[in-house]
Computed example of a mutant assay.
Amino acid sequence: MGCVESQTVLITQWPRSIVTHKNSPVEMHCYQNNTDYTYVYWYKQSGKHIQLVVMLVGDIPNYEEEFKSGFKAVKSGKQWSVNITSAQEKDGAVYLCAASLHSDVHSSGL
């Protein structure tokens, strides 16, 4: 039997909630407290539906088609952020971040 070693990733995400006006910019952040993983992700959850917004490999963002316009993701060291340049009603949701050593997290059936 083989042994798979796993490392826990502790991530701090802020702000906890955002109230804004239509067409205003919104900024959200995450920080890897004890790791510096290469692959980082932002997800959007609306009800039971979760979809990938962007995957950053190093500091290069790869946006899903629906989020190529109006979203800007950046990574600097252990912190990464996503900006919605002009928030609309359809952007109202829960946004979640994740980090991984591997690039297959976005296809895990979330």
Rank of each mutant, 00 (worst) to 15 (best):
T38I: 09
V105M: 15
L56M: 08
F71E: 13
Q7V: 09
K68C: 04
W80G: 13
V74T: 15
I11N: 00
H102F: 13
L101A: 11
V26R: 01
D104G: 15
H49T: 15
T8G: 09
T35F: 01
K78R: 08
M1E: 15
P61K: 00
M28K: 02
Q79M: 14
E64A: 15
S6Y: 03
S17G: 06
C30V: 10
T38E: 13
D104I: 10
A73V: 04
Y39R: 14
I84G: 12
V26S: 00
W80K: 12
T8W: 02
G2Q: 14
I84E: 09
K68A: 09
L52M: 08
T35A: 09
T12R: 06
S69E: 07
K48D: 12
S107F: 10
V40G: 02
A93G: 08
P25E: 10
E27Q: 10
H29F: 13
V19D: 04
E5T: 06
L110D: 09
P61A: 13
K44M: 11
T20R: 01
H21F: 07
E64T: 14
V74G: 05
C30S: 09
I60P: 06
K90N: 05
K78C: 12
L96V: 06
Q88W: 01
Q32V: 03
G109A: 07
F67R: 09
I18V: 15
H21E: 10
S86H: 03
S108R: 15
D59Q: 12
E89G: 06
G2A: 15
E64G: 10
M28I: 14
V94D: 13
G58R: 05
E5L: 13
V53H: 02
I18D: 01
A99C: 07
A73S: 11
S107H: 10
T8Y: 01
G77P: 07
L52Q: 10
Y41F: 12
Q32I: 05
M55F: 01
F67Q: 12
D59Y: 03
T8L: 13
C30K: 00
R16P: 03
V82L: 14
H21T: 11
M55V: 02
A98Y: 04
V40H: 03
N23H: 02
T20P: 00
S86V: 06
S69M: 05
V9T: 05
G47N: 04
P25A: 07
K75P: 00
N23R: 05
S100H: 04
L110P: 09
S24E: 07
L96D: 01
Y43H: 03
K72F: 04
Y37E: 15
V26F: 01
L96T: 03
W80P: 12
V82I: 12
P61F: 05
S103F: 12
K44H: 00
F71M: 13
Q88F: 01
V40T: 14
E89F: 03
V53N: 02
L96Y: 04
W80H: 07
S6G: 12
W80C: 11
F67P: 09
D36Y: 02
Y43T: 01
T38L: 11
I60A: 15
H21D: 07
Q88H: 02
D36Q: 11
D59W: 04
L10I: 11
T85M: 14
V54S: 07
Q79P: 00
W80A: 08
V53P: 03
D91F: 02
L56H: 00
D36V: 00
